[in-house]
Design a protein around this nucleic acid. Structure first.
Lengths: 135, 135
DNA sequence: CTGCATCCCCGCCGATACTG
DNA sequence: CAGTATCGGCGGGGATGCAG
């Protein structure tokens, strides 16, 4: 039987591709958090061409609040996707850059972008048809 | 300049890989909604081997509430990832199955799973190192 | 320039109870 | 069996103001 998640006596367990994980140590969850967030993938893409300073990132993604920029950058740094280097200038400047892990992840993100654009029309059509049918 | 999103006079615009979208018609957003959700990818994987009935899905993913199962299935159906077929038995039975689009999407999800498991250890280590350094 | 703290809204999601 | 309806918590994320 192809069981995805199961509830054992004490601990919730999810089975993905035949391997069991708890909800808290599931690798897919860890990655999903870095994909599902509103700004994560945009920031990753923003760093694709090399190190970028904080204020430059803000200009690249004007819609983001600096609160979310700071927070998302910290999350991504914590997970090892990017590095943060502070230059002791006056006023200080901070540069963010993808790590090897981050570049590897960027490849996955770009595949996602490719698939999305390739199939966007189909999704929109399905959505429209569904909404018209149900009302 | 590699601008990701820009704010024009009236409408917020995001630029991904050189192409501009509004926040509401962005293809990546549409797909991200189907990836970032808590249960979407699990359900997609649950249907990998063929059509599955509602109650069978519940058994495959015991942690999910039937509220979220119903809702996520409806969302995925709306976007054209799966079909819903009702059999007029007594009591009624409903079968869910991936569409071609859904199977295509499943491939993306599986690549995500692969990348996650391959790089899980590295992420956990980075996270641990970060937490120990900062406190 | 970069970042933190605070307030607050809103949508996801869980729990529970009820229908054809 | 396969839903729907309702309530409520919790967290993501926006707006604003302050600090080094």
């Amino acid at each position: 039987m192809n069981q995805i998640t199961k509830t054992s006596a004490a601990e919730k367990v999810m089975v993905i591709c035949g391997v069991a994980y708890t909800m808290s140590n599931c690798p897919v969850r860890d990655v999903l958090d870095n994909i599902g967030g509103k700004w994560n993938t945009l920031i990753i893409q923003g760093l694709a061409d090399g190190p970028v300073r904080f204020s430059a990132l803000r200009r690249m993604i004007p819609d983001i609040s600096q609160r979310m920029l700071t927070q998302t950058l910290r999350d991504l740094q914590r997970d090892g996707f990017l590095t943060r280097t502070v230059f002791p200038t006056q006023p200080p400047s901070v540069e963010y850059a993808l790590t090897d892990l981050g570049r590897s992840f960027l490849a996955v993100v770009l595949q996602l972008v490719t698939w999305s654009t390739d199939n966007h029309a189909q999704i929109r059509d399905a959505r429209k048809a569904y909404d018209e049918a149900e009302g």
